[in-house]
Design a protein around this nucleic acid. Structure first.
Lengths: 194, 194
DNA sequence: AGCATTATTCAACTGTGTTGAATAAAACCC
DNA sequence: GGGTTTTATTCAACACAGTTGAATAATGCT
């Protein structure tokens, strides 16, 4: 396509990094299905086969270029160390801190990628829920932790994955204000008996 | 492909309905990208072009065969009529009533369809949020309604769209128990002042 | 009966992700 | 420092996806 003389190029240009960079931008701008491997290749000035070579597959390109986390692990560690009263706010902050940085507001990404969904699911249901349950430690701790990940999942979903205006438009402080009561109730409220 | 003599068939078989039925099953079982138009056509014993003819496009097939609603409108009307105390429970029930019926538990659908996402978003942000705000009517009513759709969106997301085990496995009664405190706080709690 | 409409298959087109062969620079070895 | 292996790249092609246009046969209308 682009007659760039076959074979290895001069110098050692980090083509892989360049591809990852433009891929990241395109994925955030157009979403997963809306971004074609060929478009990424063209934007990086490279043959599309090179992407399979470096990243294995389109899914590989996606996860390796975007590497999304749900919550910054160190932020979570800190959130799970302070007093119980401020826990909700700290959790909310650790979500907005990470996602607001990686998913800029104007790039409304409708993430539609299997691997990402799976990763998010596993993280919410596994790590996050268990850590919260352990921190809460009281009667109904696991049930309350489940409620909490439900609320946090709702925040992630309605603000980043399928952003609805009235929530996507909030500032991080607003998020604390709006989601605070619900999350506090989920964490500390008493689920009614069966 | 299947030598079924060209042209219109004898009788008036409702082929369109048959296609919609098998499409629904396949979409629920394999998700949107995992279901090919050709596979639906094959399962319905029909040429794939017929699907474009009847439904316009794959997206059309999806929305018209699955026609998802977020909340049953009449159920919502009833939920928004009773006393404030039971509102949270009634809202939760109207979600589980509809979705548990249309998305059977074993069919974990990871909905990844643009139109559906858009519809869900518009519904949550428009209709549902406004109706709730109007019903609440007090100071911060819109802010509390926003929080409520955040929580309900979380339920829909973590139970149906990207179902995590600890929430997908709950009975509708459990859902009331687990999400009740958070939703009640969202609806009636006082958001802290700025 | 005749004509327009509708439902269907077939063949083809474009675009997508991926793979195998060819090629040239870099890295390693003795 | 020359020879070999490894790595990075382009090119050509494949298989499959969704969609479209033409051909065809049954139905419905007048």
């Amino acid at each position: 396509m682009l007659n760039k003389t076959r074979g290895r190029p001069r110098g050692n240009p980090d083509t892989r990094a360049r591809i990852a960079k433009v891929a990241r931008e395109l994925f955030l701008k157009h979403g997963y299905p809306g971004t074609t491997v060929r478009a990424v290749a063209a934007a990086a000035g490279v043959d599309s086969a090179l992407i399979s070579y470096h990243f294995g597959s389109k899914q590989g390109l996606f996860s390796q270029s975007l590497n999304l986390l749900c919550v910054d692990p160190t932020a979570l560690d800190q959130a799970l160390r302070g007093d119980q009263a401020g826990l909700a706010d700290r959790l909310l902050d650790s979500v907005t801190d990470l996602w607001d940085a990686t998913v800029p507001a104007e790039n409304q990404m409708a993430v539609q990628d299997d691997d990402t969904m799976r990763a998010l699911r596993d993280y919410l249901d596994g790590e996050l829920r268990l850590r919260i349950a352990e921190f809460l430690d009281g009667p109904d701790a696991t049930q309350r932790a489940t409620a909490a990940v439900g609320v946090l999942g709702g925040l992630i979903f309605t603000r980043y994955l399928n952003p609805i205006r009235s929530i996507g438009g909030l500032s991080p402080a607003d998020v604390r204000r709006v989601f605070g009561p619900a999350l506090r109730a989920a964490l500390h409220g008493r689920p009614r008996r069966a």
